[in-house]
Write a protein that binds this DNA or RNA. Structure first.
Length: 208
DNA sequence: CCGTTACAAAATTTTACGTCA
DNA sequence: CCTGACGTAAAATTTTGTAAC
């Protein structure tokens, strides 16, 4: 930016700056800690002109309202805002650019924390399901032991014999038994881990 | 096509201001 | 209290890319 532009900018700021100064004096909610520049001479006034100004609450609120309505800024709207707020149109442009950047950052942060939460609940879920599988395997193991115990008690009786009592293997291994657990052999994959004994029972010669 | 203008996004710098030792 | 270092948010600038004319 060349000097002419700089001076043009300065002159454009001039009226607005002092208007702002007046409006800001009544607000005074926040304490102004350090005051550079006692500003009592021409150089001081010049510095005040060139100094980067914090926009007033009123100006920011207005801009925020406008941003909430539409993130993009057409030149017509920009000029309108600038004149209504006593700002350089360039300031309005810059404000919208920065505001869009802040908005994007915030959105990314929100998205990140959402994904993080989802990930965490998925981990908890996975853990719960793994425990459930362990419990079911345990139940299966107990059932197997119980069946073996019953079979052992009937020592000497062939399980393949159609003449056995109601506790025959056909009865014990009724298809609905598996159905209740909702399992099929594909559940544990090709190894059939944990269900081998079921298959073996059908082919069991006499004792295991 | 080529230069110009206007604008946007992203990155960076500058400034104002609060906090804290 | 005062002061300087430090951190942070916001304003402004720079760089780069793109579309319209």
């Amino acid at each position: 930016m060349n000097n002419d532009d700089q001076m043009l900018r300065i002159s454009q700021y001039y009226s607005g700056i002092y208007a702002q100064q007046l409006t800001q004096q009544g607000e005074g909610k926040t304490k102004r800690r350090r005051k550079k520049n006692k500003g009592d001479d021409v150089n001081g006034a010049m510095m005040m002109m060139m100094r980067k100004r914090k926009l007033s609450d009123e100006q920011v609120n207005f801009l925020e309202q406008s941003f909430g309505h539409e993130h993009k800024l057409e030149s017509e709207r920009k000029d309108k805002l600038a004149s209504e707020l006593g700002l350089d149109p360039r300031q309005v442009t810059v404000w919208f650019q920065n505001r869009r950047a802040r908005w994007k950052t915030k959105k990314l942060e929100e998205e990140y924390s959402k994904l993080k939460n989802e990930h965490e609940t998925n981990i908890v879920d996975k853990c719960r399901l793994e425990n459930e599988v362990l419990n079911l395997k345990e139940q299966m193991c107990e059932a197997k032991k119980e069946i073996q115990r019953v079979l052992t008690e009937r020592d000497g009786v062939s399980i393949n014999s159609p003449t056995t009592s109601s506790l025959s293997m056909e009865a014990a291994m009724d298809p609905p038994f598996l159905g209740e657990f909702g399992f099929d052999n594909s559940f544990y994959g090709p190894s059939h881990e944990g269900l081998e004994w079921v298959n073996n029972l059908y082919n069991m010669p006499y004792h295991m």
